[in-house]
Design a protein around this nucleic acid. Sequence first.
DNA 1: CTATATTTGTTGATGGGTCAATCATTGTTT
DNA 2: AAACAATGATTGACCCATCAACAAATATAG
Lengths: 142, 142
Amino acid sequence: MSCSLSNQEKILHLLKGLNNQISPKFERCTGISASRYELLHQLYETEEINQSNLQKAVNIDSGAITRHLKQLEANGMVTRRRNPTDNRVIFVRLTSEGRKRIVGYQKEKMSFVNQMLHDFNPEELESLLDMLKRMQNNISEY
Amino acid sequence: MSCSLSNQEKILHLLKGLNNQISPKFERCTGISASRYELLHQLYETEEINQSNLQKAVNIDSGAITRHLKQLEANGMVTRRRNPTDNRVIFVRLTSEGRKRIVGYQKEKMSFVNQMLHDFNPEELESLLDMLKRMQNNISEY
DNA sequence: CTATATTTGTTGATGGGTCAATCATTGTTT
DNA sequence: AAACAATGATTGACCCATCAACAAATATAG
């Protein structure tokens, strides 16, 4: 990119490019997409959860949540059942197969993220975390 | 996301979530997608350029470059012509209409990015830039 | 009790990226 | 000159997100 860009513009450009690199490399490294991984990870930590809360945790569209879960269900990684006391709600849980598979994904994911941040010290990690949160907060208000 | 995540994992989650927020909001704010904007901006700064160099500047797949340019061409924003001395190469330039429109996009884009980073001081901007570059470099080697 | 509002989840359409295969053209090697 | 390699661009397939519309169920207001 041209030198005529401000730092703010460069930051935007880098965020976009970084994400475009992360997506396919994460999937190649771990064998699963980032959103699928997050869904499974959330289910690993919570015995059972409804789709609405999963959606809030993973932070993507509810339509996308449904599609992911349907495919994970077809793959035998999760099960879904309707809440008998509120038929709007669908509960989701990991199958034992899913519980087994998440362990390998976690290792690969840690490997990937540690590589990405291998030369960051703890202060930098805290600082980066803070800045990312602030940016997210700043554009939430848009 | 659960408190059981390390800072590295939180950073990855935030990067992903941030980008998912930036994409639609950038487009809503400016009226054009981020990649289209970058393509047009690159053409604004260079009288004429081939697609291969555009692809390097904007950092997306050459197939995506072709698709974007074909639509921009259909919209009357750019023109494309084959290099008479090397028939593999296609040159692209902004039309006068495109040149006119980019100005408005630039203003809106600056508005968007200034909002996103409104509470960052110059040291933080430099620091963030440096960290994003290092992450990009770290995963390039993956 | 009825009407209205809200919530949860589903589906279709769309846009944007990657991956891979392909074609045409040019460059390099033998 | 011919064979092979590399380059630039195109296209198809696929994945993933958003947006919007919708249906069913529950909650709330009157």
